[in-house]
């Protein structure tokens, strides 16, 4: 699919990502088109998750812009930022379900806060979302009573609660068995294909990348930025840079 001509939903421009004096990424620029499924990959410690946290407005950058739906969230004030946040869903690496609440309470949290729907309809939505992730009937379970894969799916359900137009995933397949992982790939794909949700996935799981991604951005810790960009198949044939080639061909070339 060709996304270059479509309007961008997310524009990242010259972003500087840093913890205090410790620069992680510099001068990162890219665009995400509406309906696109973008994977951000790279080795451990290259700043993938950090980049994600800038894109969802958890950190404010000292330099650069992150524009979502036309609003620069790096300079927006808190109210406008919160308005933007209603349109995005995030599945965190550790699921981030609130431990003291049941699944139903977790999923209904944003619905109760940001909509004026009747409680009955909200519980219908919760049931529907749980059904979509194959967790029907688990409304009254606490997160601690679930397995890792179930928690991941519950986190997915909560991320989708507000029917966001953009979904972010941080290492969604980490720690999942192959069957559960395959289910998750399918869910992600159907969100993208059937609901036309723009999806950004941060991962180093190549199976996931090859299964679902339209386009891939590869980050590198040494360069502190993007070293390759293109379709997963194009990156597998990437001969210019051995780091990209090695990563996508799952091997280690010995270089002098």
């Amino acid at each position: 699919m060709e996304y270059n001509n479509r309007e961008p939903v997310i524009v990242v421009e010259n972003l500087l990502a840093a913890y205090d004096e410790n620069v992680i990424l510099r001068d990162v620029s890219f665009r995400v088109a509406r309906g696109e499924l973008l994977a951000i990959v790279g080795g451990s410690g290259c700043g993938k998750s950090t980049l994600l946290k800038y894109m969802i407005g958890l950190y404010r950058a000292r330099r650069g812009r992150v524009v979502i739906n036309g609003v620069d969230i790096m300079s927006a004030d808190e109210d406008i930022l919160n308005q933007q946040r209603l349109g995005i869903g995030v599945l965190f690496q550790s699921n981030a379900l609130i431990g003291s609440m049941t699944l139903a309470e977790n999923i209904s949290l944003p619905l109760k806060e940001h909509t004026d729907l009747e409680p009955e309809f909200i519980s219908r939505i919760v049931r529907m979302k749980l059904g979509m992730v194959h967790l029907a009937g688990y409304e009254n379970h606490q997160p601690s009573e679930l397995s890792g894969g179930m928690k991941k799916r519950a986190g997915f359900a909560r991320a989708m609660a507000m029917d966001p137009t953009i979904l972010f995933f941080d290492e969604p397949s980490a720690g999942l068995d192959p069957v559960t992982a395959a289910e998750l790939y399918e869910l992600i794909q159907s969100m993208n294909r059937d609901m036309r949700t723009t999806i950004i996935i941060v991962t180093h799981d190549l199976n996931l990348v090859f299964a679902v991604a339209d386009r891939v951005i590869m980050l590198d810790a040494e360069k502190q930025g993007i070293i390759a960009e293109g379709s997963p198949l194009a990156l597998r044939e990437w001969e210019d840079d051995h780091r990209v080639y090695d990563f996508f061909n799952r091997r280690k070339t010995r270089h002098p």
Binding site: R85, L86, S94, A96, L97, G99, L109, E113
Partner: peptide, 16 residues
Amino acid sequence: TMMVNEEVDALVTMGF
């Protein structure tokens, strides 16, 4: 503990 588990981050991204 909620900070460590990214639960606080999740609350922020849900607009709380």
